[in-house]
Amino acid sequence: MSTETPKREIDHEEFDPKGTLALILIYFVILSILWVFMYFIEFLGNDLTVIG
């Protein structure tokens, strides 16, 4: 495997994973929307699944 030379060196203190934070926030937004969607499927789309 070739060893790549980095275009720039970044040390631990310098690196701030803002892009990661943005992606994870998007994931949480998607999860929240899907949860709301599930509410409609479970409770408004059908009768109650478990009776008695």
Binding site: P6, I10, F15, P17, G19
Partner: peptide, 8 residues
């Protein structure tokens, strides 16, 4: 992301 930023 760290790898990507090192790659420019």
């Amino acid at each position: 992301e760290y790898g990507a930023r090192r790659r420019g």
